[in-house]
Amino acid sequence: MIAHSIPATRPVPKLAAALLAVTLPITTLPLPALAAEDVTPARAAGVRKTVQDRAKPMLSSDPGGAASLLSTEAKKTNDPLLFIDAGEAYLAEGVAERDKAALEQAIEHASIGIDIAAFQQDPRCDPAWQHLDAGEYDRELTRGKKVIEDSEKAIADLDKPVEAPPPVEEPKKEKGTPRDGRGLIAGGSLMTVVGVGGLAMIGAGLALSSKAQKDVDALDPSAIDFDAQFADIDKRGKTANVVAYAGIGVAAVGLGVGIALLALGVKKRKAYRAEHGASESARVHVAPALGYGYGGLTLGGRF
């Protein structure tokens, strides 16, 4: 028995060819105007909220991504509010990245949003194509205009030549020691010490002179060496007088000049401290010094 193989019919390619033959002309035909869906404010708000909820978390971390998402959805829905949202996101990106192209996109998107929002208030607009409630248009138009203004300002700022920051004026360091009167105080202190030395000379001179006088008074005129002793004591007495007189001069000059210089120095130091602060300054202090067998003043200072 001979088996006949009957060629199987191949309906699939034929069907595909038929479909192709019919489909091709249809696709090349212009599409009739699509029966556009009605858009109401409530319906638009629902769609918009979904998009805004997706974009919101990205606005701070990735404004460019948020802008791209909002732009894509705005172009799909033709929602003027989403166009303005996209404009705001592009503005944020442009400012953050100093990106002029993003700022231009911000202007373009906000402008489209304004175009649509303004048209939707026009009598020519299809009443079945409304994305916003009547009370929302003014708010959105204002928002869109602000995006444009801010973007234009940001672009103008970018176009400005970058100005070098003003040089920070460093406080001029005074050469050498500061002119805070420390020289006068030092000199005054030295002279005061000399004056105090003069006082000491006076005291010493007077004491020696007094002792010499006592020694003279105690001499025995009948003594054989009276003349020699008298001459010796007289010599010491005269020397003591010279010391006392010299001490008067030294004390007068030293204390007069020293106190005057100290006064000038302290005055100058106060003026310097008032001008530069009290961080560093010369200090002078005078304190009484009393003890067993002595008394006086101590003068201390830091220059």
């Binding site: 009739p32 105007a33 033709n78 402008s111 489209i112 175009d115 649509i116 048209f119 607009c125 194509w129």
Partner: peptide, 22 residues
């Protein structure tokens, strides 16, 4: 610049307005 509205709806913004109108 400007946006084009056809038959009451947004059609596009120049220069990207290439429409196929019956």
């Amino acid at each position: 610049r400007g946006s084009v509205f056809v038959n009451g709806r947004y059609a596009g913004t120049v220069p990207n307005v290439n429409l196929s109108l019956l």
